[in-house]
Design a protein around this nucleic acid. Sequence first.
RNA 1: GCGCCCGUAGCUCAGUUGGAUAGAGCGUCUGACUACGAAUCAGCAGGUCGGGUGUUCGAGUCACCCCGGGCGCGCCA
Length: 645
Amino acid sequence: MIAFKSRLRESIYERLKAVFPVALEDLDMAPTPDPKMGDLALTFPFQLAKTLKKAPRAIAQEAVPLLASVEGVVKADVAGGGFLNLWLDKAAVFAEAIHIAGRTALSPDEEKIVIEHTNINPNKAAHIGHLRNACLGDTLARCLRFKGEKVEVQNYIDDTGVQVVDVVFGFMELDKKTLDDLEKLPGKFDYYCWDLYARVSAYLTEHPQAQVRKTAIMKSIEHGRDPEYALSRYISRRIVRAHLATMKRLGIAYDVLPCESTILHLKFWDKAFALLKERQAISFSAEGENKGCWVMRLEEDEEREKVIVRSDGTVTYVGKDIAYQLWKFGLLGLDFYYEPFADENGRTLWISTPVPSPGGPGFGGASKVYNVIDTRQAYLQKVVVQGLRSLNYSAQAAKSIHFSYEMVALSPKSLSELGYAASDEEKERSFLEVSGRKGLGVKADDLLDRLEDKARAEIEKRNSALPAEEKRRIARDIASGALRYFMLKFARNSVIVFDFEEALSFEGETGPYLQYTAVRLNSIFRKLKERHGVAESDIVPPSDGRALLPPGLSEKETADFWDLVLAAASLEEEVLRSVAALEFSHLAKFAFLLCQKFNGYYHKYPVLAEENKSVRAFRLLTIRTIKEQLHCALGLMGIPPPERM
RNA sequence: GCGCCCGUAGCUCAGUUGGAUAGAGCGUCUGACUACGAAUCAGCAGGUCGGGUGUUCGAGUCACCCCGGGCGCGCCA
């Protein structure tokens, strides 16, 4: 419908411009509050009132005759204090909706877009906070690809960070395990490390003198000395595989895994450092509290400065991030080497390596970059962008988007369900932050397992005769759909206070509600084939000149049909709106509303049982359009539509 | 102290870059299945949109000030 609307806007503009001082972009067309008042409302009379020194209502009155014969408009009228309401040609809109259903006419704006998301430290299992990140990032990727953009998804692996060092320390010092022992460790490795990491954190707090040993381990890893280096590498790689397996359960995949170790080996930082010095984006601090450091002055606060290179010559996290961001835009003049890491449904996932490997693919070189990182890192992301700007890469700075979102926290109820013994101070609070250090959080796989168990029980109630394998597959799809919708339904700026009961719900505004709706739609077409031998693809608009809307259709049904089709036809606009605002709760809400409208419609209007042939054909055409748009929306959210459930 | 975010129905949250009469879900209550799938649908009840002052034809939405809560502000990542 986006194409229909833009054509409409242009022809309205053509009619108005001779008489009124309007610009094309002033012609906003908002839906009316009530379909009885028309379909779209123009508000330009309000805007013109002052300059024309006329009442908005009078302006609207004057404009009405100009719009009466615009193509696609069947009626125009004045309403309220000066709204100009339009009634659209239902058949024309419906025809376009049928034509475009399940597809899009949108086109890309960028040469190439890089999205960085997930980025879990490879030292422990993924938890619900990580899931929010991955679901948002993956949905963004899907929407941009739908739009036609060339998208590359990167999952940055901090394989040399202190968090991995902590776990190496734990294996060596607390558990006295060798690499050989690790290879034989039974059970879920990421779960083992989850507990170990919490144990190490507690141990280091109680035994500050152990920091010396930890520092020694870190140095060994940096210099590639075994057994520390071999352990760190083994741990990080095995955990990354665990994370990938978790994300695969949600249909989330990546193109490339850039590793921090490679950034260090290939001297990305040295190159970036030289650039920063050369263009004076950073300066050497000769005195004061940051004496001996290379620092960047902050634009919004001249008093403050951020240390980029420490006095001991090592680079900070932000410094490395600036180098990485430069590489994403192809501004570093360096590239990684790559080797295959995994095969995901026939698609190769590549990992960076310092070892030259001829014939490998190339990554990076984007014209726009989205970094999906929670809002607590907003300050650091600002510094990164300022880094680009200071290097005179203002175009790239403007296209460095921090896709920020609030954290996932735990409700007091979920804390007690996890068996967490909260301190008195913690009991006062309305929620607690997830903390890997404390081992406090809901592990992604645990939550998915619980969702699957519950889904399987529900399937058993309804479809116990299905083959076991199919029941398992459906349970997986429902678990995935429930979780993905849950992660998208909240606005990104609001803290999700996680509650098991809410997250495990399959009723109301949930993923399974949407899936159930899709299943009902499937069933109609399955039965159409079984009972009447008509395939879904045979449902097409009448070709013999008969009207798209059957004559004599009741006023009530026309209104219900129209409400449904208008909703379905706004998918593309909703996608654009969601991407522009980075607010995928819009898309989620859109899909939910569409399902609600369909379920209400279907309740009132029988389809297969309808005796009047032309009415039945019309309803089939209507719901087929709905089905395709719904499947499309589900696909954008990564919610799998089961055949049955 | 400075910066960012949040405050809407009993609970959890939407609210289309300012539009007409503020909406969902859950929960409560009342109804609808020998099924085109009840993971559904129909209905009842529930609101000084934290408070105030402005801007505007129009404010839940924008500005400023308060109140309450969260998160940042490391030579950690």
